[in-house]
Design a protein around this nucleic acid. Sequence first.
DNA 1: CTGAAAGCGCTTACAG
DNA 2: CTGAAAGCGCTTACAG
Lengths: 339, 339
Amino acid sequence: MPVTVKQIAELAGVSRGTVDRALNGRGNVRPEVEKRILEIAEEMGYTPNRAGKALAYQRKNLSFGIIVNAEGNEFFDDVLKGARMAVDEYADFGITLRVACGRGYDVGQQLAQLDEMQAAGVSGIAISPINVPEIEEKINRMIDAGIAVLTVNSDIENTGRLCYVGCNYYQSGVTAAGMLRLMRPSGVRAGIITGSIRMLGHNRRMKGFSDSLKKMPDSLVSDVEESLDERDVAYQAARRMLTAHPEINTLYFAAAGAVGGMQAAIDLGTEGLTVISCDDTDEIRSLMRQGLIHATICQEPFRQGYRAMQILFDAIVNNTPPAEEFCYMDNIIRIRENL
Amino acid sequence: MPVTVKQIAELAGVSRGTVDRALNGRGNVRPEVEKRILEIAEEMGYTPNRAGKALAYQRKNLSFGIIVNAEGNEFFDDVLKGARMAVDEYADFGITLRVACGRGYDVGQQLAQLDEMQAAGVSGIAISPINVPEIEEKINRMIDAGIAVLTVNSDIENTGRLCYVGCNYYQSGVTAAGMLRLMRPSGVRAGIITGSIRMLGHNRRMKGFSDSLKKMPDSLVSDVEESLDERDVAYQAARRMLTAHPEINTLYFAAAGAVGGMQAAIDLGTEGLTVISCDDTDEIRSLMRQGLIHATICQEPFRQGYRAMQILFDAIVNNTPPAEEFCYMDNIIRIRENL
DNA sequence: CTGAAAGCGCTTACAG
DNA sequence: CTGAAAGCGCTTACAG
């Protein structure tokens, strides 16, 4: 039989209200009384009943926010779905979710979104931040104001954010190279199409990839180009790279841009070309079914959104901050057969 | 603002008790009153508040059961962990979990475990059933007695079980062959070590594997042996097979038995041998780190247990039977780099 | 067939 | 600094 506030109150000879104040550090309890209550709770192994808590929370009207820099982006749609699913499960606490979608790394826009969230009175925010000092400062000011903030999918330094939830980028690149180790154990001449060299995560992926490639016999990275996550840019970049480097026998798409890049490869001939990409959007799945992309390394976008909200909930409602500063998703290998 | 029983009661001009009876089909409500209540609820988009429900359920002392035929088995330990995690999340409903572990496919033992569960008054059971008529009948009698039953990890036919939760065995075999397609695109001579040819799942895996192999140029299954999930049997089987078939260049472990089987391969020489296994126990991970097993296809054991309890909960507490008869896990590819 | 009341566990506004 | 009481939403034993 689980222990309740009522039982602790009886044992301590005080009212349930006092037990609540002591247990939750709300103050206004005589120190020696507080101490005794905490001891009794500890001894009896008290854990709050979630349902009781939920019902009482109904009147608080809490809300969480999520800010992702990606409008009409299939990947972030999944992150949002995960976040919605989690918050739906907290519906009995009367918690709601505010969503803000940005586009094109517009710092002013993201600052405004943070302001709106604060004005709306959210208790916690998950954000995929643009990595610039203005955002850093803004995040720190919101934390000072008592709002719980964590980063999702991309991280930002010098802030008091609770934790980072997202891809283990370095290991993602290592895993991509691992597939190559099995498929093309030597003589790799890799061309990399990254998103932006200003994106920390993309660089970590490339580092993991090239560190691993160095351990394979006679293998090296021939060239790197940026796609800026734009289809046309990716097309031109891949075309330029494949033309300038006819020795390239392997393409690694370390970010979005696989669709445009693959079109260039198709135009120039894909014979003997091994291709690894990231994520599994519909277009990537289609290229895999055609046998043009051989493997893709995914990062559980749904679970990123889900976990982010779970961590905010634990921090805010259960007063339990995350155990780890980095909450990494699994790097999931998909090939045609397990799409 | 979500709709509550109280609001429906006011609109319908009846008491909350009557609304509860109508909404949950408990009978004792005048048909026209019931109809009106259901209409109002429908129209207002009523969904029961989980916390309210949980608190009221505290007094019911429900319990669920799980029966897995595997004592001291690392794989099933994960299934159990998942089940415990899910039931912990239902603690606020006062629900508890009963666990029964069997060993060695003992039908009498499993029948006794089912009896115990029923005597203990569980509301639902997840079972990894031994596939024999006695168990079929027993399961059907328990369902007749009002207990919700579902199968986990292995299935059984001719029963009224709610659904099956577990590996998509056929696709697991297809995925194993898919890795071969990338690593050794032609000339495969495969030796298969299965668990038991009496296990439906193992056979489905082999079927998926060999169907896929047939589509690869100059590739075929050279031989099949059973391990009966025993290390020594697996060792002898692999040794016999590799000796009799020196042309074998690929080993596929379609069940447990990889550890014993790999020892035979090591003793006879692993040069040029490609090895695919199932699951990722500690011993398999160790063989992968040594580069002896190249890829393993996993089936999310933790999630199997978790989902099984979730489905029981939905069926029993929310009166919502599972949407699908087959709840398949993802087939997760692991290589050394993403262990 | 129906309603009023109590209770599940936690929190809070109010009174003292 | 503390307690008594009400309330969150749902269910049920009891009375009629």
